[in-house]
Design a protein around this nucleic acid. Sequence first.
DNA 1: ATGGCCTGCAACGCAGGA
Length: 254
Amino acid sequence: MKLATWNVNSLKVRLPQVLDWLKLHQPDILCLQETKLEDANFPVPELQAAGYQALFSGQKTYNGVAILSRDAGRDALAEIPGFIDPQKRVLAATVGNLRVVCLYVPNGQSVDSDKYRYKLEWLAAVTAWLKRELAASPRLAVVGDFNIAPEDADVHDPAAWQGQVLVSAPERKAFQELLALGLKDSFRLFEQPANSFSWWDYRMNAFKRRMGLRIDHILLSDGLAPACLACNIDPGPRGSERPSDHAPVIAELD
DNA sequence: ATGGCCTGCAACGCAGGA
């Protein structure tokens, strides 16, 4: 089965691309971030016509997450338990025998900002929650836009990015603490080309110049990781007309 | 050369992204 994640930066703008991509890749599950849609405006009929059920948690203008799946998701949860947050950034659901958690981790803006402090608090709360999810669901996938490049290999110019938001030591530590719960970065289970990124700035022709970061991830529980046959980033949509600044990431599970 | 682009909202510029 195929499990994918994609920060679409507005599902309203990107719906035609998402429908094309679903048709081409036929994933069993596609998690979306930055849908930027209130739930009442979610394109349920269009996705249903394409053969996908949808669970979603959105708000006006910002954030918003969704889980599209061939088989209906159940036991949905759209909050980090005990963490009061008006921002719609998490959605968990069970699809078949898989527990899926879709995350849109806060960006953090800059390391000296309130948004950065919120990012670290948010990550701590997610980590505490996922520890319990893992205990309850050994077959767990945690996917989404993590807004963290875990290693220098995930950064086009590590020297220029040194200490900046998305690569700073506290963020990378938070990412490692997530892995320490018993999760694997599926992309790194396999040999990968150098300069594999999932996000490129809209400015400066960054995509064509291969100036990107790998910040979108598919983490698999230790119980699930052995079933992973492949993990790849699909840069195709990033090169199309009016692209999202993020590329989809796809894992193939046995 | 510290900007540059894109989206949504509501307005004719702003916040936010990363």
